[in-house]
Amino acid sequence: MKTQEELTEIVRDHFSDMGEAATLYVQVYESSLESLVGGVIFEDGRHYTFVYENEDLVYE
């Protein structure tokens, strides 16, 4: 099982292909040891929320 830090790095790496991230945040109260819930805000103003669970990243 991966730590939240490892899950955060996986998510950060995925979003790095989409541009320069200004902020990546984790909603600790919705996350667990198995999943990471949060969002990313890019330098150009785009904002996505995400759920990373079971090696699957879903974002909108």
Rank of each mutant, 00 (worst) to 15 (best):
M1E: 06
M1T: 10
M1V: 11
K2I: 08
K2N: 04
K2H: 06
K2Y: 06
K2S: 05
T3K: 04
T3Q: 03
T3N: 05
Q4E: 07
Q4D: 04
Q4L: 15
E5M: 09
E5N: 07
E5G: 06
E5I: 08
E6S: 05
E6A: 07
E6N: 05
E6F: 07
L7F: 03
T8N: 05
T8G: 04
T8H: 05
E9Q: 14
E9G: 07
E9L: 11
I10M: 08
V11S: 03
V11A: 04
V11T: 02
V11D: 01
R12S: 04
R12C: 15
D13K: 15
D13A: 15
D13G: 13
D13T: 14
H14P: 02
H14K: 12
F15L: 04
F15Q: 02
F15E: 02
S16N: 09
D17G: 14
G19H: 05
E20F: 14
E20L: 12
E20W: 14
E20N: 12
A21E: 07
A21T: 12
A21V: 15
A21F: 14
A22W: 14
A22T: 09
A22F: 15
A22S: 08
A22Y: 15
A22C: 15
T23G: 03
T23Y: 14
L24P: 01
L24K: 01
Y25D: 02
V26E: 00
V26P: 00
V26Q: 01
Q27E: 12
Q27S: 13
V28C: 15
V28A: 11
V28W: 14
V28T: 08
E30S: 13
S31D: 05
S31C: 11
S31I: 11
S32H: 10
L33Y: 09
L33R: 13
S35R: 15
S35W: 11
V37K: 12
V37W: 10
G38P: 01
G38F: 12
G38Y: 07
G38Q: 03
G38T: 03
G39D: 07
G39V: 14
G39N: 05
V40E: 01
V40Y: 03
I41N: 01
F42P: 00
F42G: 00
F42H: 00
F42K: 00
F42D: 01
E43C: 13
E43Y: 09
E43M: 12
E43P: 12
E43L: 12
D44H: 02
G45V: 06
G45K: 01
H47C: 13
Y48D: 00
T49F: 11
T49P: 00
T49M: 09
T49H: 11
T49R: 08
T49D: 00
F50R: 00
V51P: 00
V51D: 00
Y52L: 08
Y52W: 09
Y52M: 05
Y52A: 01
E53P: 02
E53V: 12
N54S: 06
N54W: 08
E55H: 12
E55S: 12
D56K: 15
L57A: 03
L57Q: 02
V58K: 12
Y59V: 12
Y59L: 11
Y59G: 03
Y59D: 02
Y59I: 13
E60S: 10
E60F: 13
